[in-house]
């Protein structure tokens, strides 16, 4: 997102990274009512709305953590758009019927829409990666967990009772296997067109 100065609302993204209760509470106070109102108008209830809000915040946390998300637009419309999209997906999952939506009155500027697009794409990719990681064998999963959380390769080798050379080689092979799994997933090709 270039070097543009982040928007003042970047504080909400930072609060997710720091797990800052006071500012996270502020997010609920300021932005939850609109989302809850919208979901209630569209065949949902408050509990479901809260789940959507939490899931959306978690996605933002992940995007900030992995990709260093920097907001250059206000949080309000962006966040609402994300929650709304998530809710529509939820409704679609539940029924194969057409979903009718009572549009809320929100003006979405291009910047917010662009950010929402980017986040949606990030989320889809993140989900795919997680799904494919789960398909790896137990040995690969364990080895990857160990090599990424324990920084010294020697220590990992010792822990797994393998040689240093083996662990190194196996790490590259496991990520390689994951790369192939992702490449072969039909969803990946759909995503690629959007990249």
């Amino acid at each position: 997102m270039g070097n543009t100065k982040p928007h003042a609302d970047q504080k909400y993204i930072d609060a997710l990274l720091q797990n800052d209760t006071a500012i996270l509470t502020e997010i609920y106070q300021k932005f939850a009512p609109k989302v809850i109102g919208y979901i209630k108008k569209n065949s949902g209830n408050e509990t479901q709305a809260k789940d959507i809000i939490q899931e959306t915040l978690i996605v933002l946390y992940k995007q900030a953590k992995e990709k260093g998300l920097k907001l250059t637009c206000p949080f309000d419309a962006y966040f609402f758009l994300l929650c709304k999209r998530k809710w529509i997906n939820e409704l679609k999952k539940k029924s194969n019927n057409e979903v009718t939506i009572n549009e809320g009155v929100v003006s979405i500027d291009d910047e917010s829409a662009r950010f929402a697009e980017e986040t949606a794409l990030f989320e889809a990719k993140h989900e795919l990666f997680t799904e494919m990681f789960d398909q790896l064998g137990k040995a690969c999963k364990e080895l990857l967990k160990a090599t990424f959380t324990i920084k010294s390769m020697e220590e990992v080798a010792q822990k797994l009772g393998q040689s240093y050379g083996y662990v190194r080689k196996k790490k590259s092979l496991c990520i390689g296997q994951l790369t192939q799994l992702v490449q072969e997933a039909p969803k990946f090709n759909q995503l690629k067109h959007l990249l």
């Binding site: 997710l16 209760t21 509470t25 609920y28 106070q29 809260k50 978690i58 953590k65 992995e66 990424f148």
Partner: peptide
């Protein structure tokens, strides 16, 4: 994938703390 694994595998605890906290905040909010 390399950077994805690096962040996600290292942030598991952090993520679960955040989830717990958000749940609590959400509940109080209601």
């Amino acid at each position: 994938l390399h950077s994805h694994l690096d962040t996600t595998l290292n942030a598991e605890q952090e993520l679960s703390n955040l989830k717990k906290n958000l749940k609590q905040i959400g509940d109080t909010y209601t």
